[in-house]
Amino acid sequence: MVVEKYLLLSTYNLGIAFSVDNIFSTQGIIVMLLVAYGFSMWAFLTNAPKVYTVMVSDIKIAQKFYEGLLKLSAADIPLHYYYTPEENLGTLATADPLYMSMNYTSMSGLNPNRTYGLWYQLKKNTQLHIISGASYGHNNRQRHICFDNRCLETILLKVQAKRLRYKVRCKQPLNFLVKDIDERIIEMLEIKN
């Protein structure tokens, strides 16, 4: 008996909540707009590409490696990367000095006075963002540093597919050496957080 009264009351309350007057009221329209906004943000974020960032010692040498040897195609910058970190923060005074000290190379199609790094398509919905700022390794060896194991595993698979000379030094964290076009040894290194 109590359950039947509760079900009738619940049905009555749902009927009131979804009545035509309530749906087209100011509050109803605001709720519908918020639901639509939430859905559109969900759709945008689920379709946004995964971005891996690799910090390199020399961006010109890295460009020869990723374009010349691995044959990665250039990628468009994702929407959420159009602004530099200092613009995202709102003022230059509060920007992190780590970002301000990096020397990116200019990309075509964007403001030539701005610097963005290099962007490559790694997989279908995965991009590779190359920035400078890594220190040189032993004997001034080129060093490419990444914080994500999956990124370096994907690069290693590309190296293996191109039949380049490489040597895995350590699997956890992943560390391998590979030779570039000019027979330079590049150290690919995963950094653990």
Rank of each mutant, 00 (worst) to 15 (best):
T115F: 06
L98D: 11
P97L: 12
L89I: 11
A95P: 04
S106K: 15
L98G: 06
S106F: 03
T84K: 14
M100P: 00
T91F: 08
T115G: 10
N113P: 01
D96P: 03
T84H: 10
S108D: 09
M102S: 05
T94S: 12
S108P: 05
N113I: 07
R114S: 15
A95L: 08
T91D: 12
L110S: 10
N103A: 10
E86F: 11
P85M: 05
L89K: 13
L98P: 00
W119F: 15
T91K: 13
M102F: 00
A95E: 12
L98W: 05
A93M: 05
Y83G: 00
S106Y: 07
Y99A: 07
M102Q: 13
N88A: 08
D96R: 05
Y83D: 06
A93P: 00
M100K: 11
N111Q: 13
G109W: 01
W119C: 04
Y120F: 15
M102I: 14
L89H: 04
P85F: 00
N113F: 13
Y81M: 09
Y83S: 07
L92F: 06
Y82C: 07
S106G: 12
D96C: 09
T105P: 09
G90V: 10
E87V: 08
L118V: 02
M102V: 13
W119N: 04
T105Y: 03
Y116V: 12
Y116Q: 13
L118P: 03
T84L: 15
N113L: 13
S108R: 09
N111A: 11
G109Y: 02
P112I: 09
N111E: 15
T115W: 01
S106P: 10
S101H: 00
A93I: 06
T115Y: 06
Y120H: 15
T115E: 14
N103F: 00
D96K: 06
Y116N: 12
A95Q: 10
G117E: 03
S108K: 12
A95M: 11
T84F: 06
L92V: 07
N111H: 05
S108E: 11
G109L: 06
L92I: 08
D96W: 01
E87C: 03
S106R: 15
E86G: 03
W119K: 01
P85N: 06
S101E: 10
L98F: 12
M107Y: 02
G109F: 00
